[in-house]
Amino acid sequence: MQGIDIIATVFMAGGAFFMITGAAGLLRFPDFYTRLHATGKCDTLGEVLIIVGCMIYQGWSFITIKLIFLMLFIFIANPVGTHAIMKAAYVSGLKPWKKGEARR
């Protein structure tokens, strides 16, 4: 492996770690709102890190431009989607979990 491959591997390994953390948070956290915290942050950074790793491996070409578009789209669309689901749940009256209650 050359130097660029090692840097790309490090980025992608970081992204994979954050994605595993996000999935674990989706399983472990006690209610809907806290689960969205895990998915909305960990998944965004994990996916962007994996795409950045692909960009470093690719070098400079037209595919890199498409990957940049994809990265910007994920950065904008992921928080908006999280916010939309959370607003729908809040408006329709789902009560948030307080400390000390049972898991839901």
Binding site: F18, T21, A24, G25, R28, F29, P30, D31, Y33, T34, H37, A38, K41, C42, P96, W97, K98, K99
Partner: peptide
Amino acid sequence: VAYRVIHPKMPIDPRI
């Protein structure tokens, strides 16, 4: 968030 997920006791105290 990763620290709060991995920590065994989950130090969270949600509020609005």
